[in-house]
Nucleic acid binder design. Structure first.
Lengths: 189, 189
DNA sequence: GCATCCTACTCAAGAAACTGACTAATCTCT
DNA sequence: AGAGATTAGTCAGTTTCTTGAGTAGGATGC
């Protein structure tokens, strides 16, 4: 029920095409929502039909034409209503954790590999988010930015994403170490 | 595609009925997967049909009868195959973060309230997970348990959940503080 | 003693998400 | 010069998830 609101929130900070929105979802919005391009195109069409956003055609020479969307007053009102309503509990879904949950009964070698990969991926994303935060902050330091900066919303959600990635990385590395040690111990018995 | 594997992994550590499984999903498994009871009953039926689990009727005097399920050899094999395959990237989905992303453009008062509620909820869940970990660990200390304990899988996923709840709580409190300060500053202008 | 909660499930309808393929031009790298 | 990536989408089919209601007896609380 709230992909529509995630899209509205993402469109608050400027005009986006569906394609650009898909990129934004891969970086910033991915910290709290995940959606495929097909879903976004469909949702943009619905939002426009419902008058919560408006699109305008932009003709390009060297690229295919595109449609840029911005939030209407009705769209702002919708977001306001949404923000005041109770939130659903957050949820995570993670394949790898399912596998780790079964670690007692299955071969852990592929798990260790995947944990290492995950740790690297988390590190990479953490780096990306760090530089994104740097860019948003500009010359201000973090305290100052949190007090006075514009676009505080995306900044705060990126902070959440960064903290998540760092914790995730730390857990992956520790878990991989634990499983390695136990594998070794079993081999020596 | 992997609710089935989450169910299999949850059933590894003893027999469960659908109803008990739903409870387990609210506590331990919720750290990495979320599902409603209806989904679980449906999935159990499918898993049984596919021969990955078997159920046996347990007649009860004072309670309605129930069916307890356990993983078959085919089920173990299926989990093994799943564990060796590549994992999908993990994903989060969080209403509240959507709202925070829009914090520049909407009334932040309901957000501050919801952040406080979330922080309390996260604290409560962290407490729950801490005592769950205590119980699993028994007399051993953590290092010792991680080296030699049984049921290391659930222990490790609970550790992930605990770390998540703690981080989530810290972020909620900090974000609420930031929004409060900015609201105050705006009121004084 | 009455209401509500808990155990234990089932069913059906509708909304949302995922999979995978397809178009079509341009730009980049080798 | 050709392969592959990038921009900018669209479409259809299937699976999965959510919403909401219903059944039924025993236990618990006020």
């Amino acid at each position: 029920m709230a992909l529509r609101h995630a899209v509205l929130a993402a469109l608050l900070h400027g005009e986006y095409s569906g394609y650009q929105l898909a990129k934004a979802f891969d970086i910033g919005v991915a910290n709290f929502w995940h959606a495929l391009p097909q879903q976004l195109y469909a949702e943009l069409a619905k939002l426009e039909k419902d008058g919560l956003i408006t699109g305008r055609q932009v003709v390009q020479e060297t690229r295919p034409n595109k449609r840029l969307f911005q939030v209407t007053d009705a769209g702002f009102a919708e977001l306001e209503t949404f923000a005041a309503a109770v939130s659903k509990p957050s949820f995570i879904r993670d394949d790898l954790l399912v596998k780790i949950h079964a670690a007692d009964r299955i071969d852990t070698s592929p798990l260790i590999e995947q944990l290492d990969e995950r740790a690297s991926a988390a590190e990479a994303r953490a780096g990306l988010l760090t530089s994104l935060l740097d860019t948003m902050r500009g010359v201000l330091d973090e305290e100052e930015y949190l007090r006075t900066g514009e676009r505080i919303g995306p900044y705060l959600t990126c902070l959440r994403g960064l903290s998540f990635e760092r914790e995730h990385r730390a857990w992956c590395l520790r878990t991989a170490a634990v499983l390695r040690e136990r594998r070794q111990a079993r081999a020596e018995r």
